Each structure stands twice: as structure tokens, then as C-alpha cells.
Computed example of a mutant assay.
Amino acid sequence: MISHELFHTLHQLSRLLTNKLNEALKPLGLYSAQWAVIFTLKKRGSLTQTELCDYLFVEAPPMTRTIQRLVKQGYVKQVPGKDKREKHVQLTDEAINEYPRWVRVVNEVNQGLLNNFPEASQEELLKLQNSWLQQIL
């Protein structure tokens, strides 16, 4: 059945991409899960933990651990919201200063992975992924 092979291959590809990114970010003291949070906060601004979980499709316990690590590293801070239970997660000045270095490493990994993948195919894959996500969500 093609659906099983499709999803198996997507899962394997996702794991491979995560591993490659982790290898590249490790010398900088980050992992892909932390990068995902940093990138999202840079792109979308201050978010609650729930909003981060929803956007990144991550359960609350691993998100809590990731945020706690980033707080200890000095890359994010939690700011109280309107409600005492609600905390907004924001990038610190240190993270904003380090961001260009991190994004440079991530872009190098991405470019390396795409070296032999034609640009037209990249664009088509992006369109397919976006279309599929919109249908699922």
C-alpha cells in the first residue's frame, strides 16, 4: 500500500533532517527542538506556551522542558500575561544577538541538504506540503 510507504518515508526523512540539524547546532549549544521555538518566536513574536505547542504540534511536557532549558541558557524569558496562569515566552536580547549566527548554521545545513534537489522541485514540494497542511488542519 502506497500510503504506508509514503508516511514511513516522510517519517524517516523527518528524523534524518532532525539529526542533521542537531549535529550542526550541537556546537552552538542548541538542539532542533530549541531552534524550532527560537525560530517561531523570532518569526511570530511573543507567544504563550499553549500557542507554541499548537503551532509546533508539540505536547505540553516536552515544550515545558524545552522552554526551561532555553530560560537557563538565557535565550528566552517568561513574562506574566493578563491571567496569572498565562505566561508569554519571549526571546531575550542575548538570543536576538545570537540569532544571525544560528540562522547561518541552519541555512548551511539546509543548503547542503538541497544541493542536488532542483529549485523547481523544491518549490513544488513546498506547494504540496502547504496544500496538504491546509487540508489536514
Rank of each mutant, 00 (worst) to 15 (best):
K42P: 01
H4R: 15
L17S: 04
F57K: 02
A120I: 14
N115K: 15
G81H: 05
L128V: 05
H4E: 11
Q129G: 13
V37P: 05
K77D: 09
S46Y: 05
T66H: 04
L16K: 11
G112N: 14
A60K: 12
A95W: 08
I2Y: 08
T66A: 10
H8Q: 13
D54C: 01
K42V: 02
R85I: 00
Y99R: 11
G81Y: 03
V105K: 10
R65C: 00
E123Q: 11
E119A: 13
I38T: 09
V76H: 12
E51K: 09
L28W: 03
S121G: 00
Y55D: 03
Q90E: 14
Q129D: 06
K127M: 05
L30Q: 04
Y75G: 02
E23Q: 14
K127S: 12
Q90S: 09
P118H: 01
T18I: 05
V109G: 10
P118D: 06
L52V: 09
V89M: 07
A24V: 01
L70F: 02
E86A: 03
V76Q: 09
L137W: 08
R69A: 07
G74F: 02
L30Y: 11
Q68F: 02
L114I: 00
R69D: 12
L125W: 11
Y75Q: 10
I96E: 15
V71L: 03
S131F: 12
F57M: 03
L16T: 07
V58D: 00
E23P: 00
T92Y: 12
K87G: 00
L91C: 05
T50R: 10
Q12I: 09
H88Q: 07
L10Y: 12
N107W: 03
V106L: 10
D93C: 01
K20M: 06
T64H: 09
P62M: 03
F117C: 05
I67G: 02
I136T: 10
L137N: 06
L47E: 11
N130A: 08
F117M: 06
Y75C: 03
Q78P: 04
E119Y: 06
I136L: 12
A95S: 13
A95V: 06
S46E: 14
N116D: 15
H88N: 09
L126Y: 05
L41Y: 03
E23H: 04
A24D: 09
D54S: 07
A120R: 13
E51P: 04
E23L: 07
V79S: 08
F39Q: 07
E59T: 01
E119I: 04
P100Q: 04
W102L: 13
M63K: 00
L6V: 15
E86P: 00
N22M: 07
V106E: 04
N116G: 06
L133T: 02
T50L: 12
Q122N: 01
T40M: 08
G74M: 07
E123P: 00
A24Q: 01
T18Q: 13
F39R: 15
I136Q: 08
Q135D: 12
E98Q: 12
N107T: 02
K87V: 08
L47G: 06
Q111W: 05
L41C: 07
Q49I: 06
Q135K: 15
E98L: 15
E59R: 10
R101P: 01
R69F: 08
A24H: 05
K84D: 09
A24F: 08
Q111L: 12
Q68Y: 01
K43E: 13
L17I: 01
Q122Y: 03
L133H: 07
L126T: 14
L125A: 15
S131T: 13
L41N: 03
K26Y: 11
P62H: 05
